[in-house]
Lab assay of single mutants.
Amino acid sequence: MSRVPSPPPPAEMSSGPVAESWCYTQIKVVKFSYMWTINNFSFCREEMGEVIKSSTFSSGANDKLKWCLRVNPKGLDEESKDYLSLYLLLVSCPKSEVRAKFKFSILNAKGEETKAMESQRAYRFVQGKDWGFKKFIRRDFLLDEANGLLPDDKLTLFCEVSVVQDSVNISGQNTMNMVKVPECRLADELGGLWENSRFTDCCLCVAGQEFQAHKAILAARSPVFSAMFEHEMEESKKNRVEINDVEPEVFKEMMCFIYTGKAPNLDKMADDLLAAADKYALERLKVMCEDALCSNLSVENAAEILILADLHSADQLKTQAVDFINYHASDVLETSGWKSMVVSHPHLVAEAYRSLASAQCPFLGPPRKRLKQS
């Protein structure tokens, strides 16, 4: 649940008159999402009104509101027999009622949201009550392989729920002597030191190019640089560091992050930047690179990204790559990247197969709970 924001200063709310007192009302909304995959969808019983329910879910471990999704594969009634019906059901509720908006969509073979439908307002739910769409999607369109909505005969539904909580009022009075504290510009100011090479005390040599930097900042941000300058190493004695395995453009992006906490060109060089972040123990930059690479996972590059993640101990990226390969196994196994990995990294192939087997055979063990970014 997000923290209630402070109200904007009255002088910034309007260029008009300023009242002596004010009130700011925040209506709290808890948002969460749920993904439900139905394997072997074409084998569902086709009687009209037949119901399939998901397991229950909530916004978190401490949330007492429990929900589930309900599907009628062949419609709810005679009117909707040519459609799939989809509903959000409130299973248990400690209150007399709650209000919530919802959005349903289908994830296609690429994991993209399609055929989205959402409620136009927050509906009133009581325990045992459901709301949804009797005519969510035509069955003939859903079952047509050309539309790519049932890869490997799996129907994957994605649901986003927004639950309306209580409202909170914050009130106060205006004073004539309003003090406005300026925003912190530390990142910009440190970035200026790097860009202008002011007050530098060490030189970093990268592929024949020299960059002036500040030992204190490098040591504070990177345990690797800290070790170089702290001990009686040649880098500490000469205040000069030779860097041979990072390209200059990648190095500059890494230094921008060290000084400012930002990497504006990360998406263009996420793979190389991940390697640099791993070498210099820049954990936050490493996770930022993992996130960017996750966003660009595809059938063509899944094997290469899995190898990269394994090489640099990028655990979150590795998990996402394995899950992606499992979901698109029939396509990924035909790529040149996968065939190369079979020869060069057989242990990763074995890991992917083990994960695929456990996903398809849940009876082999208890269900695993899916539970950071600093």
Rank of each mutant, 00 (worst) to 15 (best):
T156S: 08
A303V: 11
I137Y: 02
K135Y: 09
D77W: 10
E351S: 03
M228W: 15
R370H: 04
E304P: 10
S96L: 14
D267L: 12
D63Y: 12
V168Y: 06
D63E: 13
S330K: 11
K64Q: 10
S105C: 15
G191N: 13
L65M: 09
K64N: 11
E351Y: 02
C205D: 14
M48T: 02
C203G: 13
Y87N: 00
L150A: 11
K129L: 10
G132I: 00
L76T: 11
G111Y: 10
Q316Y: 10
W338I: 00
P94Q: 08
F199S: 15
P17C: 14
M1I: 00
D130K: 00
K81A: 10
V168F: 11
E249Y: 01
M13A: 05
G261R: 02
A263T: 07
L308S: 09
A314L: 04
K180I: 07
A146E: 12
M176V: 03
Y327A: 02
V179S: 07
K28L: 11
F251I: 02
L69D: 00
V51Q: 02
F229S: 14
E78K: 10
F324D: 00
S2N: 07
M176I: 07
L143Q: 12
C205L: 10
A329V: 09
K53F: 01
E230D: 12
K318W: 09
C289T: 04
V30M: 04
F229K: 13
E97P: 09
Q173C: 03
E235Y: 10
E78Y: 14
L204G: 13
F211Q: 15
I137S: 05
E189D: 04
L356A: 04
P94M: 11
V164I: 07
D152W: 10
M288G: 03
E210F: 08
D245N: 05
Y123W: 13
E145G: 06
D271V: 09
V250G: 11
M35K: 04
D331F: 01
L84R: 00
K81V: 12
W338N: 00
L317V: 03
N39I: 04
G132T: 00
D291W: 15
E253G: 02
L90M: 10
P367Q: 15
K110L: 12
G16H: 11
E242V: 02
P151A: 12
V349N: 06
R121H: 15
V299K: 09
Y259S: 01
E160V: 06
A100S: 14
G191Y: 11
E210M: 11
A19L: 03
L193R: 05
F324C: 07
F158I: 14
P264C: 02
G208W: 14
D201C: 11
V18Q: 07
V332Y: 00
G365V: 13
E235G: 04
